Simulated assay, not measured.
Amino acid sequence: MDFRLTRDQRDLRAGVRDLLAGRYGRDALRSAVSSAPAGGAGGAVVDRGLWRELGEAGFFSLRLPESEGGVGLGLPEAVLVFEEAGRALLPGPLVATHLAAGVVPGAASGSAVVTAFDLGGPLVAYLGEADAVLGATGLPAGEPAASVDPLTPLWKSPGAAGVPPSPYREAGALLTAALQLGSALRTVELAVRYAGEREQFGQPVGAFQAVKHLCAEMLVRAEVARTAVYAAAVTGDAAEIAAAKLLADEAAVRGARDCLQVHGGMGFTWEADVHLHLKRAWVRAEQWRTAREAEELLATRLTAEAGCSE
């Protein structure tokens, strides 16, 4: 099986990166963070204009058949697109709206914002901005709740199901893993760049062995996660998707932490972007499939396979 990207896939990824760089670059990210509600409680962070532009570009209708007005591509291509969105820290219920294309009116075109019960318990992200909830009838009532990520406003809703809608769970977990992968790869870039710019004792800090090791470990985790995510996108196997989510969560969270350490005191300041990657990674790790759920699924699969081989 050939996992190498085709030219069309590489062009797709480059096109999405260029689109996001021009429409949601660092200045737009920092502006959104500055205007976000304090504590990430409630508020509005979804740029409806950008949301519609994403719809026009086929971001949400990517996997819809051409006969239904979609692009007609598959999960491997969707993973590449979501990887770029994760790299740019693009906010909003991207996964839920993508999954709702063809199901919820306006989702495919980006004229509707669709969220999902993809967090455990009564918490729902972006509920105050959503036009619909994936797999639910109507919008449940809710009240703003504190969020660690300023660009992921949370709402506490007694009507939340507490579990992701099962027909979409595997694709939702994989696309969230792709978002985590993009963030992990971006923190590698940030760490390497800073290590080459920051000097101590007359030389870049990247020349020191401890910093080299941190950057190397970040890269290894990110590339292992990339392999797992790409492979799961091709096979669509539930266990492989669980493994991909597990590895991507680890790469994103640990990568952001190591990137903070490479930056030293600068990394903990509000002006640096590193903390935004860490906070978003924490939230995504709880979406669609947690580490514990992924481990349980993998353990069940391995136990079943061991029993069959006896």
Rank of each mutant, 00 (worst) to 15 (best):
M1H: 01
F3P: 03
R4M: 04
R4G: 05
Q9E: 12
A14N: 13
G15E: 15
G15R: 14
V16H: 07
D18Q: 10
L19M: 04
Y24P: 03
D27T: 01
D27V: 00
L29Y: 06
R30F: 14
S35I: 06
P37S: 09
G40V: 05
G40D: 04
G43H: 12
A44S: 00
R48D: 03
W51V: 14
R52M: 02
R52H: 02
G55P: 00
G58R: 10
L62G: 03
E68I: 10
E68P: 07
V71K: 11
V71C: 10
V71P: 09
L73E: 04
L75M: 14
V81Q: 07
E83Q: 15
L94V: 05
V95S: 12
T97I: 08
H98F: 03
A101P: 07
A101F: 09
A101W: 11
P105I: 13
P105Q: 13
S111A: 15
A112M: 06
V113M: 11
V114K: 05
A116Y: 10
G121M: 13
V124A: 00
A125R: 08
Y126P: 10
G128A: 08
G135M: 03
A136Q: 15
L139R: 06
L139I: 10
G142K: 05
P150R: 13
W155F: 12
S157Q: 04
P158Y: 05
A160N: 05
G162N: 01
P164K: 15
R169W: 08
A173K: 00
L179R: 15
Q180D: 07
A184M: 13
R186K: 14
E189S: 13
R193H: 14
E197L: 14
R198D: 08
E199N: 12
P204W: 13
G206F: 00
Q209I: 13
V211M: 14
K212H: 02
E217V: 10
L219D: 07
R226A: 15
G236N: 10
D237F: 02
A238S: 09
E240H: 03
I241V: 03
A244N: 05
K245A: 10
L246W: 09
L247K: 08
E250A: 06
A256F: 07
C259F: 05
T269N: 03
W270L: 07
L276Q: 11
A285S: 15
Q287V: 01
W288Y: 07
W288A: 00
W288M: 03
R292G: 00
R292Y: 01
R292P: 00
E293V: 09
E295H: 06
L298T: 05
A299N: 01
T300A: 09
A304Q: 12
E305S: 09
C308Q: 11
S309W: 11
